[in-house]
Design a protein around this nucleic acid. Structure first.
Length: 248
DNA sequence: GCGACAG
DNA sequence: ATCTTGTCGC
């Protein structure tokens, strides 16, 4: 177990988020992002952490790189890690980022030609209490374009999962349909996306770094064979498989 | 005190 | 995150 974070540490975390927030680029910066069919995009990455049943500190950090548009696995890296921070909504990055960054650095050192051109992150980007979720954190620290994809809605900045939200979800007719997640300020912090025709439950997409919201949504949809985009789904499957075989 | 709470 | 099989439907 983890000791509850002191108020001083929380303040330190908040100020670090505020500092790094200034470095987030919320627009498309790559040529392939402007292409209608993402021509020029060849590698998409996915990251995730999987845990053992009753263990909160030991986890498997996973990085996968898939080909685009075929979504075939080109690279995979599973690494057991020891976490140093507890899970606290709004501060997920301080728990996971260090190990995801290390995985990206191992890849850059060993097989730089396989570095992904964009990374899908399991969690929110700008759709966050202070507009700086895990996807932004990893994006800024790695310098890579990142997209945040959350499987559950985080109620933040005036976005609630009330009946209105439910009706908006019901209005998503087919894969690719979406609606904006608008903050009280009027800013669109992300979008709820029906990622496939089969799944009526949407995923929540937001900007991590170096990509626009609309491009992030369009790209996410194009990487979905199932509800969760393939890079994240593969990272999840492979890290679980690793734990299954290494810790029976 | 009550509800919320990405992973 | 994780605990967990079958079952209903296409």
């Amino acid at each position: 177990m983890f000791a509850p974070p002191g108020e001083d540490l929380v303040n330190q975390w908040e100020s670090e988020q505020a500092r790094l927030r200034l470095q987030v680029i919320e627009e498309d910066t790559e040529d392939w992002q402007r292409s209608p069919d993402f021509s020029g995009l060849e590698r998409v990455g996915g990251v995730d952490l999987s845990f053992i049943k009753g263990d909160d500190i030991n986890a498997c950090a996973q990085l996968v790189v898939l080909s685009y548009p075929d979504l075939e696995v080109l690279y995979e890296d599973s690494q057991m890690v020891t976490l140093t921070a507890p899970y606290i909504a709004g501060f997920l990055a301080f728990r996971e980022t260090p190990f995801l960054l290390e995985a990206l650095q191992r890849l850059e050192r060993n097989q730089p030609t396989l570095l992904p051109q964009v990374v899908f992150v399991d969690g929110n980007g700008l759709f966050h209490y202070r507009e700086f979720g895990l996807a932004c954190h990893l994006g800024v620290l790695s310098g890579l374009p990142c997209v945040g994809v959350a499987k559950n809605l985080l109620q933040v900045q005036g976005v609630y999962k009330n009946e209105e939200h439910q009706s908006q979800i019901a209005a998503l007719q087919k894969g690719g349909d979406s609606f904006p997640l608008t903050a009280a300020s009027g800013k669109v912090l992300g979008k709820a996306l029906r990622s496939s025709n089969k799944s009526s439950k949407p995923v929540y997409v937001s900007v991590g770094h170096k990509i626009s919201v609309d491009t992030a949504v369009r790209l996410t949809h194009s990487c979905c064979r199932y509800r969760v985009p393939e890079p994240i789904r593969q990272a999840d499957c492979l890290s679980r498989e690793y734990l299954r075989t290494q810790f029976p």
